[in-house]
C-alpha cells in the first residue's frame, strides 16, 4: 500500500499547513492497527490525543449546575427514537388499509342492496304475471260458461218440474 499521501499530510501537519479535514484524515489513519513501521512512532501521539478527547466531567455535574442556577434537572428523560422510513409511513399504510376495508364493505353492501332491489323487482314482475294469469283465468271461465249457456238453449218448460 502506498502511504505517500499520509506521509505528505503528516509533514504538512507538523508545519501547521493542514486543514481541519486533513487532520481528521490523519487521525482516522492512525486509529487503525495496521500502520507501517515508518509512521508507527507518531501513532502514539494521535492515540494520546484521542484519549484526551474522551475526558469527561462526572455524571452528576450537570444536575448540580442546574440546581445552582435554579433550574431543575429533568425528572424524566425523553429519549430520541430513531425511526426508519417504514415506521414513519406506517400510519399512512394503516389509514390506506382502513380506507380499503371501508370501501370493500361499502361496495359489498351496495352490491347486495342493488341485488335485493332487482330481486324484489323480479318478484314483483313475477307476481304481476301470475296475478294477470289468474285474473285471466278467473275472468275467462264465466265467459266460457255463459258462452256454453247461450250455445245450449234451455228448455225451461221441460226443465220445470212437473
Amino acid at each position: 500500500m502506498d502511504y505517500k499521501y499520509i506521509e505528505q499530510l503528516l509533514e504538512r501537519y507538523w508545519e501547521c499547513q493542514t486543514t481541519l479535514e486533513e487532520e481528521a484524515i490523519l487521525r482516522n489513519f492512525f486509529r487503525q492497527e495496521d500502520v507501517p513501521a515508518s509512521l508507527l512512532p507518531y501513532r502514539q501521539f494521535f492515540l494520546e490525543e484521542d484519549e484526551m478527547a474522551s475526558e469527561r466531567l462526572s455524571k452528576d455535574f450537570q444536575d448540580k449546575m442546574l440546581r445552582l442556577v435554579g433550574e431543575e434537572a429533568p425528572t424524566h428523560i425523553c429519549k430520541a427514537r430513531r425511526l426508519t422510513f417504514m415506521r414513519r409511513v406506517r400510519p399512512f399504510y394503516r389509514a390506506a388499509g382502513l380506507v380499503a376495508i371501508l370501501l370493500t364493505i361499502g361496495n359489498a353492501a351496495h352490491q347486495s342492496f342493488t341485488d335485493d332491489a332487482e330481486d324484489i323487482k323480479a318478484a314483483q314482475m313475477a307476481e304481476g304475471i301470475v296475478a294477470d294469469s289468474l285474473q285471466q283465468i278467473t275472468i275467462g271461465s264465466p265467459e266460457q260458461q255463459s258462452a256454453e249457456l247461450t250455445a245450449q238453449p234451455v228448455d225451461t218448460i221441460s226443465t220445470l218440474p212437473r
Partner: peptide, 23 residues
Amino acid sequence: SDRLFRLALRITMNRAEAEDVVQ
C-alpha cells in the same frame, strides 16, 4: 461543560480543580 473541563484540566493538571473551574 466537557469542553471547558478539558481546557481547565490541561491548565490545572488536576481533575478536582478543573471541575471547580468549570463550575
